[in-house]
Amino acid sequence: MSNASVELKTENDVVRFSIGKPGDNAFSRTEGKKKNKRVKISKRVKLNELRFYRLKAKKKMTSPNPEVRIRYKLEKAKRKEAWLIEMLRKFEVPKAPAETYDPEILTEEERHYFKRTGEKKKNYVPVGRRGVFGGVVLNMHLHWKKHETVKVICKPCKPGQVHVYAEELARLSKGIVIDIKANNVILFYRGKNYVQPKVMSPPDTLSKYKALEKYKYEQSLEHTSQFIEKLEEELEEYQKHLARYKKAKEDTPKDSVINT
């Protein structure tokens, strides 16, 4: 009895004693852990499974029925679209709390003066395919060391995207938008009481590498969405064609009976 263990259990105001060996509980725990372990699949089984899915996909791709082929492509494209959206969520940066600063109010004369002087100067900051990231804001602050104004040239830029860039850069750099030209040029003024920040690249922006990765995923998502639209149109046209064919087939016997 010296090696035995005594357990006291209370259930529904009833006290129960159980006597057992000290290793029993440990054994039962290890046994439970063993049961929870996943069964390892051999390499051959995995290869056979992959081969099965490939053959299944090949059958759909080479199917004589156009609807099967279109639906397979559509399903695959939608899976890719969902994956791309999930990947783009990883690049979402939480916006930092807005700092309190006094926005300067410029008169029309001052605005006109800064617009004229800014247009004459050659200093500019490019915004390329990466879009707005930390390096763009950093370059703006570096230009503002010697110049009051700086031009931001957006290439390539979609229609209306220049206004989004202007709003985002104004928030990040605390600069004042003087003018937005039709040829995707934004003119910024640093402000009368401009003080260069200690951290010129805001923390709530992406790095150069991550901005490029995000751009690639966005491009892929755009092309995939266009491809899905195209496939949906093809499927709709095919279904209309089938409906017309069935209708014509149903009408032909009636016509032949009338003619006889």
Rank of each mutant, 00 (worst) to 15 (best):
Phe91Arg: 11
Tyr101Trp: 15
Glu229Gly: 07
Ser42Pro: 06
Val152Leu: 04
Asn184Thr: 11
Leu169Pro: 01
Glu234Asn: 09
Asn184Pro: 03
Val6Leu: 09
Thr117Leu: 13
Phe17Leu: 12
Ala26Leu: 12
Thr100Leu: 13
Lys60Glu: 14
Glu234Ile: 03
Cys154Gln: 06
Asn123Thr: 10
Asn12Glu: 06
Lys21Glu: 02
Lys37Gly: 02
Arg111Ser: 13
Tyr238Asp: 08
His223Asp: 15
Thr224Gln: 05
Tyr189Gly: 06
Arg29Trp: 11
Asn193Phe: 09
Val195Gln: 14
Ser42Cys: 10
Glu237Pro: 01
Gly131Arg: 00
Pro253Gln: 01
Phe27Cys: 11
Lys35Tyr: 06
Arg44Lys: 14
Ala248Ile: 08
Val14Ala: 07
Leu212Gln: 04
Arg79Lys: 15
Lys76Leu: 08
Lys174Phe: 05
Glu148Thr: 07
Lys230Glu: 15
Asp204Met: 02
Asn139Asp: 03
Lys122Pro: 00
Leu235Val: 06
Glu213Trp: 01
Glu167Ala: 13
Lys145Tyr: 15
Lys95Cys: 11
Ile70Ser: 13
Asn193Leu: 12
Asn193Trp: 05
Tyr72Gly: 00
Ile176Met: 04
Arg69Trp: 06
Glu11Arg: 12
Ile105Pro: 03
Cys154Val: 13
Leu50Gln: 10
Ile153Arg: 11
Val164Pro: 02
Asn36Cys: 01
Met87Gly: 05
Pro126Asn: 11
Asp13His: 10
Glu213Arg: 06
Lys56Met: 12
Lys230Ile: 08
Pro103Cys: 01
Met87Ile: 08
Arg244Ala: 10
Phe133Gly: 03
Pro156Glu: 09
Lys80Pro: 09
Phe17Ala: 08
Lys40Ile: 12
Lys230Gly: 05
Arg69Ser: 08
Phe91Gln: 12
Lys249Pro: 10
Leu242Cys: 09
Trp144Gln: 02
Lys46Leu: 15
Lys9Pro: 00
Lys174Ile: 04
Glu229Arg: 06
His163Glu: 06
Phe17Val: 10
Leu206Glu: 01
Ala26Cys: 05
Lys115Trp: 15
Phe52Thr: 14
Gly135Asn: 02
Leu221Glu: 02
Leu142Pro: 08
His112Met: 11
Glu92Pro: 00
Phe91Gly: 10
Leu187Met: 09
Asn184Ile: 13
Ile258Thr: 11
Asn36Ala: 14
Met200Asp: 04
Val127Asn: 02
Ile258Met: 05
Lys216Thr: 03
Glu167Gly: 08
Asn193His: 07
Arg190Asp: 04
Met1Glu: 00
Leu187Ala: 09
Leu231Ile: 05
Gly23Pro: 00
Glu49Phe: 14
Arg71Met: 10
Lys230Asp: 14
Met1Leu: 06
Thr205His: 04
Phe27Pro: 07
Gln239Thr: 04
Lys58Thr: 06
Arg111Pro: 00
Val125Met: 01
Glu92Leu: 14
Met140Arg: 00
Val150Ile: 12
Asn183Met: 13
Lys76His: 13
Ile180His: 03
Gln161Pro: 14
Ser173Asp: 03
Lys181Glu: 08
Lys249Cys: 08
Lys181His: 14
Lys246Glu: 15
Lys240Asp: 13
Leu187Lys: 10
Val68Glu: 08
His163Pro: 00
Phe52His: 14
